[in-house]
């Protein structure tokens, strides 16, 4: 069976189970991806894992993406699933509003999700409800923000010894301090 046929078959099985609750089936960069409402994430993941024909029992990655312009769906959590027997991969996404960034934790289904959810919380502030130990994993515990959200510039904002003019973004530390 060719990849396209495999993917259309997978799509068929999933839509049969969830009907119009799953949407946005796409085949980007040769991998099938689809979305579902965040309330259904564990149900869909469980179905992908336990269905005898699908068998996506291995979670290779879990991460988040921040889309500041998508109102009401700013944060998107992406699950990468892998069928080890047939070597087929699939992406599954759920979106949530940034004001209420709660998504049910998949750590019960896959132990590997434990640390990856902690990392996603660390960088994007997605709160995984039901996670056994949701705290920062890579950044310092004292950090007060989520650095990979788009509103935070890359540079360390606490630095005062840098002259912006030298970095081609206007402003001069000396003149600024004189004005203040």
């Amino acid at each position: 069976m060719s990849t396209t046929e495999t993917y259309s078959h997978i799509q068929e099985i999933i839509t049969k189970q969830f009907a119009d609750k799953v949407f946005n089936f796409q085949e980007t960069y040769g991998m099938l991806s689809f979305e579902a409402p965040k309330e259904l994430n564990l149900e869909v993941l469980g179905f992908l894992t336990n269905h005898p024909e699908l068998g996506f029992a291995f979670m290779t990655d879990l991460c988040a993406v921040h889309f500041p312009d998508k109102k009401g769906a700013e944060l998107q959590v992406v699950y990468h699933m892998h069928n080890l027997e047939k070597n087929v991969r699939i992406r599954f996404k759920v979106s949530t509003a940034i004001e209420d960034p709660t998504v049910a934790s998949a750590a019960i289904l896959y132990p590997t999700a434990n640390w990856m959810e902690r990392e996603t919380y660390d960088f994007f502030g997605v709160i995984f409800t039901g996670h056994p130990n949701l705290k920062r994993i890579l950044n310092v515990d004292e950090m007060t923000y989520f650095p990979l959200r788009k509103e935070f510039p890359l540079e360390d904002q606490t630095r005062i010894d840098k002259d912006d003019e030298m970095f081609g973004r206007g402003g001069n530390l000396l003149t600024q301090s004189l004005q203040n």
Partner: peptide, 12 residues
């Protein structure tokens, strides 16, 4: 000085 790593995770 932190070098090229002018970022949130590196000590300056």
């Amino acid at each position: 000085s932190g070098g090229i790593f002018d970022t949130y995770s590196v000590l300056q």
